[in-house]
């Protein structure tokens, strides 16, 4: 716009600005309304969907995890608040809180055996065993979700990935890279020897012994001197699936 001199020019400019503002506000309002409308539709659709598939969501772990995935994509967390309409609608909040409590119980009960590190698979099967009466299938996805909710408590529950396996940690032990590598190595047979660690990971014997001793002290490993070759084996109850339920009943 060419700027014209004088009072008239200034007035015209101000009037034009007002006009622009009005139009702009209008457009924004229309947009917000549209958005609100869309959101309402979406919410009611989602509600309707959840209502319709309520039973599937509660009973079928695969469906449940897909539902969660869908919710995550649109930025809705059905677990975010207990008093939300989700909780009322599905009782889904309670479900995970209950799982969380049971997970804590299992971790505590098995701690003296595995040093506070438990295989996710094992945790899951122990959980299913304990919930036999409820007759609802539990998937690993459910476990992970329940554990993520436990973080709020600040009790140090954490899921760590070692090799192909996921382990759930319920003690504040810090595992460094060396420890993780040993645990990964142990996944094949359930145990390692110092010699294997040195060879496979190309470590000095001091480094291997140091890491093994720490794992032993933390209660994550058990020694076994009974093999006929006379080599000490370090077993890791948290990775060996041979051993399931002792101490958890």
């Amino acid at each position: 716009m060419r700027r014209r001199p004088g009072i008239a020019g200034l007035q015209t400019a101000a009037a034009a600005r007002d006009q622009y503002r009005l139009v702009g506000e209008n457009v924004a309002k229309i947009r917000t309304d549209l958005m609100k409308e869309q959101l309402a539709t979406f919410k009611s659709q989602l509600e309707e969907f959840a209502q319709k598939h309520k039973n599937d969501i509660r009973k079928n772990p695969i469906f449940r995890s897909q539902f969660h995935e869908m919710c995550a994509k649109v930025g809705v967390d059905p677990l975010a608040s207990k008093v939300g309409f989700w909780a009322e609608l599905l009782g889904i909040g309670d479900f995970y809180y209950e799982l969380g409590v049971q997970i804590v119980e299992i971790c505590l009960a098995s701690r003296s055996h595995n040093g506070g590190l438990i295989n996710l698979q094992e945790l899951c099967s122990l959980l299913s065993l304990r919930r036999k009466a409820v007759r609802e299938a539990i998937s690993e996805d459910d476990c992970l979700r329940a554990i993520s909710k436990l973080k709020v408590l600040g009790s140090g529950f954490e899921v760590i990935s070692i090799g192909k396996k996921k382990l759930v940690r319920s003690v504040p032990t810090e595992l460094n890279r060396d420890h993780n590598e040993i645990l990964e190595l142990a996944q094949g047979q359930g145990y390692v020897t110092a010699e294997e660690v040195e060879k496979r990971l190309s470590w000095s014997s001091g480094r291997a012994m140091d890491a093994l001793e720490t794992l032993l002290k933390e209660g994550l490993a058990m020694i076994d001197d009974g093999h006929s070759d006379g080599k000490r084996r370090y077993w890791f109850p948290c990775v060996a699936s041979v051993f399931v339920t002792a101490g958890v009943d």
């Binding site: 058990m222 076994d224 009974g226 077993w235 041979v242 399931v244």
Partner: peptide, 9 residues
């Protein structure tokens, strides 16, 4: 079960 887990020996 623990009877079959070597380190318990």
């Amino acid at each position: 079960n623990f009877f079959n887990y070597p380190p318990y020996f």
